[in-house]
């Protein structure tokens, strides 16, 4: 496990609240964590607030959402008070975001090259030619063999794995120091998953950046991340080193682990998670 470095992201008591006709709904109910140059996994079931936590950091929530936090500090920027303009220089430039399915997350009517070089032109203020060169170099860095050809392709002409490489390349052009990957491999074939994870790992380690890896795949997070936050109903129920996951103490985490099938020891019938209403209470 990489030793925790100086945190670049410091979140304290983050709440995300949606105003609805039926009254306010809290999707995230007081989440605190720090993130350094490490691979931090955030794991939880659908609706546990993991995606909302990631989006709150980038302030990319719908208008009906309200972000409340005691502290939401990214490097020298206070994300909770930053103006929209300041956020634009954080998004993409200093925090990158990788979404689930490149089939939907890339613009269907813009060529791959256009979409990547737009980042370079906008954030690095370079000219057209320079942006194109940087794009080609970036495509090469994500192990795309024929960058000149891929540059001209449209999203519908590339495979899912290549689409995700393109997404990663796009988010790396401006050299952010933190990447939020929201289920980046869920839409991919199992065989391609490994390659994308390897690529992410290579990038995070070689560039020395932080990664927030949002997933619902316990096994993947266990083998890929350094540290894991387990979320349940908008709260973090447990924070644990990935290697220590076997020794988890919270009953929810233990329940999740019990419910996993294993390849080496056949199991009769998988345990079903027995939910306890007390998990909904704040731990502190």
């Amino acid at each position: 496990m990489a030793k925790p470095t100086q945190p670049m992201l410091d979140v304290e008591n983050l709440k995300v609240r949606f105003r609805t006709l039926a009254g306010p709904i809290e999707a995230v109910r007081g989440v605190s964590f720090t993130l350094g140059k490490e691979k931090l996994g955030i794991i939880g079931e659908s609706g546990s607030g993991k995606t909302m936590t990631g989006r709150a950091v980038m302030r990319l929530l719908p208008k009906s959402a309200e972000i409340i936090a005691d502290k939401l500090q990214f490097e020298d920027v206070d994300l909770s008070t930053a103006t929209e303009r300041q956020m634009q220089s954080v998004r993409g430039r200093r925090i990158g975001m990788i979404l689930q399915d490149p089939k939907y997350s890339l613009n269907p009517v813009m060529s791959v090259g256009q979409q990547i070089s737009e980042m370079a032109r906008f954030h690095l203020r370079v000219g057209k030619r320079e942006a194109e060169e940087r794009t080609l170099a970036m495509l090469e860095q994500v192990h795309i063999r024929d960058p000149h050809r891929v540059y001209r392709l449209y999203p519908h002409e590339v495979s899912g794995g290549m689409g995700q490489r393109i997404m990663i390349a796009m988010m790396l052009v401006a050299s952010p120091s933190l990447i939020i990957a929201d289920e980046p491999t869920s839409a991919l074939d199992v065989s391609v998953r490994g390659q994308i994870l390897e690529l992410l790992d290579e990038i995070v380690v070689s560039r020395g950046i932080g990664l927030m890896f949002i997933s619902h795949d316990l096994n993947m997070v266990r083998s890929f991340c350094d540290r894991v936050l387990i979320m349940y109903a908008g709260r973090i129920v447990e924070t644990i080193a990935a290697s220590e996951l076997e020794n988890a103490r919270h009953p929810y985490t233990i329940g999740l682990l019990e419910a996993l099938p294993r390849i080496d020891a056949p199991r009769d019938r998988l345990a079903v998670l027995q939910r306890d209403p007390s998990w909904l209470e704040p731990t502190r």
Binding site: M87, L99, N107
Partner: peptide
């Protein structure tokens, strides 16, 4: 659509997101 979220996550100003990305579609 998701790609609009991507465009915003890229840090593009609202005008570019609307006219440069969504409008093209």
């Amino acid at each position: 659509q998701e790609y609009v979220l991507t465009a915003r996550a890229k840090g593009l100003p609202g005008r570019t997101v609307v006219w440069g990305h969504a409008f093209r579609n």
